[in-house]
Amino acid sequence: MRPRESNRQGRHLASFALLLCAEEPTHGLALHRSINQLLPEGLKVDAGNLYRLLREMEARGTLRSEWSTVGSGAARRVYQITPVGLDELADWHEDIAHRRQAFDLFIQRYDALRCRPATHEHLRNPLNE
């Protein structure tokens, strides 16, 4: 059974939004495109989820926005990270680094397990105690 994609989608969306806004202030559509370019196929982000998150982050004070009329077309809301957002971004970095250590360990042990399938015959035979 494969883990369901819907359980994982968006879990770290805030971390990517903060990271990209720390690199450069940006508007929502450009942020959506950038995040989806970074993420693997099964983890693409829905624009509606991103815009809801941006409003929530602005309410929390991690991002601030201003309307920009630079360029042609309609005005765009440009998001910029705040000092509170930089603190949250550092927390995300720490959390992701710890999770990465755990995931790396899982992958190493799983790969080692696959190298010795004969030792797990007892798992395939329900009558074997």
Rank of each mutant, 00 (worst) to 15 (best):
1 M>L: 10
1 M>W: 07
2 R>C: 01
3 P>R: 07
3 P>G: 04
4 R>E: 06
4 R>W: 00
4 R>N: 03
5 E>T: 10
7 N>I: 04
8 R>S: 06
10 G>L: 07
13 L>I: 08
15 S>C: 02
17 A>Y: 02
18 L>I: 00
18 L>Y: 00
18 L>P: 02
18 L>G: 03
19 L>A: 12
23 E>A: 14
24 E>Q: 15
26 T>N: 05
27 H>G: 09
28 G>M: 08
30 A>R: 13
30 A>Q: 12
31 L>Q: 10
31 L>S: 02
31 L>D: 11
31 L>T: 05
31 L>R: 10
32 H>W: 14
32 H>D: 11
32 H>S: 09
32 H>N: 10
34 S>Q: 09
34 S>V: 03
36 N>G: 01
36 N>K: 01
37 Q>W: 07
38 L>N: 07
39 L>N: 03
41 E>K: 09
42 G>R: 09
43 L>W: 02
43 L>H: 06
43 L>R: 12
45 V>I: 13
45 V>T: 08
46 D>E: 15
46 D>F: 08
47 A>L: 14
48 G>H: 09
50 L>H: 05
50 L>K: 05
52 R>I: 04
53 L>M: 13
53 L>R: 10
54 L>W: 03
56 E>N: 11
56 E>R: 13
57 M>Q: 12
57 M>P: 02
57 M>R: 03
60 R>D: 12
61 G>I: 03
63 L>H: 02
64 R>G: 05
65 S>W: 01
69 T>N: 13
69 T>K: 12
69 T>C: 11
70 V>E: 13
71 G>W: 08
73 G>C: 10
74 A>Q: 13
75 A>Y: 07
76 R>Y: 04
76 R>C: 04
76 R>H: 05
77 R>K: 15
77 R>F: 05
78 V>S: 01
79 Y>G: 03
79 Y>P: 01
80 Q>S: 15
80 Q>G: 04
81 I>S: 07
83 P>D: 14
83 P>N: 08
84 V>H: 07
86 L>K: 12
88 E>V: 06
88 E>A: 14
90 A>E: 06
91 D>A: 14
91 D>V: 10
92 W>I: 01
93 H>Y: 10
94 E>M: 03
94 E>G: 07
94 E>P: 00
94 E>L: 10
96 I>E: 05
100 R>K: 13
100 R>T: 14
102 A>C: 04
103 F>I: 15
105 L>N: 12
105 L>D: 14
105 L>P: 00
106 F>H: 08
108 Q>L: 11
108 Q>M: 13
109 R>V: 08
109 R>P: 00
110 Y>T: 14
110 Y>L: 15
111 D>K: 08
111 D>C: 09
111 D>G: 11
111 D>A: 10
113 L>K: 12
115 C>Q: 14
115 C>S: 15
117 P>F: 04
118 A>V: 05
119 T>F: 11
121 E>S: 13
121 E>F: 11
122 H>M: 06
123 L>D: 02
123 L>A: 06
127 L>N: 14
128 N>K: 12
128 N>L: 15
129 E>C: 07
